[in-house]
């Protein structure tokens, strides 16, 4: 067994195990951490496929930013786990149906021989720069979809900021406006009273 194969089986096992744990563990923090482990293992598999740019970006965006905030929310929420489990029997039929459809879809796609023939990865040389390759395709051939995606994200950012604004109150936090604070003079705050006997 070559080293590459050993690394692949090791991290593939981690990926499968972490995915299973994510949907089976009771504690939501543990579930979020299993998802982190799954992302990390997937990133390693991508790097093995010589897609190092995508692998690193997966770690940077999903593990480094998205999951941190996710974990943050899960930790601060007071989740009642037993309540979450109540609907299990009720949702079983529809869940089973979705699982069946997805399973059938995967079997149908994976058993067609053409898929594997088409996706045998080509070995690139050590000097092949796939960051450069992705950049070139992204900014030439796919420049419009790329820019549209960016605009959609911008709209989402603006929408998220608008949601946090409370129209009833001008300021929603106790933070001090530094522009106001520097304008304060001593006579605004202190009243001098003459206490000497006259």
């Amino acid at each position: 067994m070559t080293l590459e194969l050993a690394v692949f089986y090791g991290f593939a096992a981690v990926l499968v195990l972490a995915s299973l744990l994510m949907i089976t563990v009771r504690n939501p923090v543990h579930a979020a951490l299993s998802l982190v482990a799954a992302f990390f293992a997937a990133a390693v598999l991508w790097v093995l496929l010589e897609a190092e740019f995508l692998g690193i970006v997966l770690v940077l965006v999903y593990v480094g930013a998205v999951m941190v905030l996710f974990l943050f929310v899960v930790m601060t929420l007071d989740l009642n786990v037993s309540q979450l489990r109540e609907g299990f029997v009720r949702y079983l039929p529809i869940g089973g149906l979705v699982a069946l459809v997805m399973g059938a879809g995967m079997i149908w796609v994976l058993t067609r021989e053409t898929v594997f023939e088409r996706t045998t990865p080509l070995r690139a040389g050590a000097d092949y720069n796939n960051t450069l390759a992705i950049g070139q395709v992204l900014y030439t051939e796919y420049v419009y979809p790329f820019e549209i995606a960016a605009v959609i994200l911008l709209v989402a950012v603006i929408a998220a900021i608008t949601l946090t604004l409370d129209p009833r109150r001008r300021r929603t936090s106790k933070s001090i406006d530094p522009a106001e604070a520097v304008k304060v003079r001593a006579k605004d705050r202190i009243k001098m009273v003459d206490l000497r006997q006259k």
Partner: peptide
Amino acid sequence: INAALLYVLALSSLGVYGIILAGW
């Protein structure tokens, strides 16, 4: 590696897990 700077940024963003988990 070619994407070294990105690797540095990705890995240094992982350090926060140790701190969050320690606190929790």
